[in-house]
């Protein structure tokens, strides 16, 4: 029981790690305050769900389709709003995520609040193939372990990929934009094109995270993709460290361990009150860390631009 619980925490940490790699790329390395990441995640997840259930696509083909659609959404949002001032851009991305959630809740194609169900047969086949293999090393009893393994393999691979990209001249241009976009433009770099690439890549990462959310919850409904989850992403980002991909992994594990760990504390509170308390803790945490250690645990204070 308890091990299953922690495996689940690990799955969440991995999924939100992938999700937050995109936020780190945007906020930590490009200086873009993208608050619409949950919207891209929803687009990725629902594309997969709808293509499999309504169109009979294979799950494995639906995944790249979901990524492509999320990237297109990222390009669309970017072209529409990347030229805005940064506070307007933040508002525009939040509005985008709300529009996505609102559409999914009300449109016919997404099943409204009933959601989308029954797209994960192919994944369960893979999972069932892995379980006997895991049983040979004595771990066959944990049904979520295959998902945990796949999520973390993907997370680590994507993390290394992003780390590698950041070390290239391409990543250097992004950091230049984060520091001062006018100065970077004055050196001949097409700032808009790079911001667009950053946003599109973050949307792709969100879509991958959305795919795993779909496999994890097995049932898609709009509140899974509440824009609040983007805020969770930022919370674990600043916990782990600003402008650090390693920090995303550390932050995600710590954040979900602490947050889910509160479930194990025996209290006389009702379930609803416990849920509220968890959100209050996240809120207090955001307030405290912004004040006390804005660069996070592994972040570098030199790269945390301090500007009024």
């Amino acid at each position: 029981m308890s091990i299953d619980f922690w495996i689940n925490v690990g799955v969440l940490a991995g999924i939100y790690g992938i999700f937050t790699l995109g936020l780190q790329l945007n906020a930590g390395f490009t200086g873009l305050l993208n608050f619409g990441q949950a919207g891209f995640m929803a687009i990725g997840a629902y594309t997969v769900g709808i293509l499999v259930v309504d169109r009979g696509w294979s799950l494995w083909l639906a995944l790249p389709a979901g990524i492509v659609l999320a990237v297109l959404a990222g390009l669309f949002v970017g072209i529409a709003s990347l030229r805005l001032r940064s506070d307007h851009f933040a508002i525009a991305t939040i509005a985008f995520a709300e529009i996505v959630r609102y559409t999914l809740q009300n449109a016919a194609f997404s099943g409204g609040n009933q959601g989308v169900l029954g797209f994960d047969a192919e994944w369960r086949a893979v999972s069932d193939w892995m379980l006997p293999w895991l049983a040979t090393i004595g771990l066959g009893a944990y049904t979520q372990l295959p998902l945990f393994i796949v999520v973390w393999l993907a997370f680590v691979a994507l993390l290394l990929m992003m780390k590698g990209l950041q070390a290239t001249p391409w990543g250097r241009v992004l950091r230049g934009i984060r520091e001062d976009e006018d100065a970077t433009a004055a050196l001949g770099k097409d700032v808009f094109a790079y911001k667009l690439q950053s946003l599109a890549l973050a949307a792709a990462l969100a879509a991958v995270a959305g795919f795993f959310v779909a496999l994890n919850v097995t049932y898609l409904y709009p509140t899974v993709f509440d824009p609040t989850f983007t805020f969770f992403g930022y919370a674990l980002l600043v916990l782990g460290g600003f402008a650090s991909y390693g920090g995303v992994a550390l932050g995600s594990v710590l954040f979900w361990t602490l947050l889910e760990g509160t479930r194990l504390i025996e209290t006389s509170l009702s379930a609803g009150q416990q849920a509220s308390l968890r959100f209050i803790i996240v809120g207090v945490f955001l307030l405290l860390i912004s004040r006390l250690r804005p660069q996070g645990l592994l972040g570098n204070v030199n790269e945390m631009r301090v500007r009024p």
């Binding site: 906020a27 600043v238 308390l277 209050i280 996240v282 307030l287 804005p294 301090v306």
Partner: peptide, 26 residues
Amino acid sequence: LAKAGSLQLFLSAIGLGLVLRFTVQF
């Protein structure tokens, strides 16, 4: 006074919003 950057301000506002809303809900 600490010359906080815009990310810090955004996250503080979001944190405060969560605290208010869920304290009410609590």
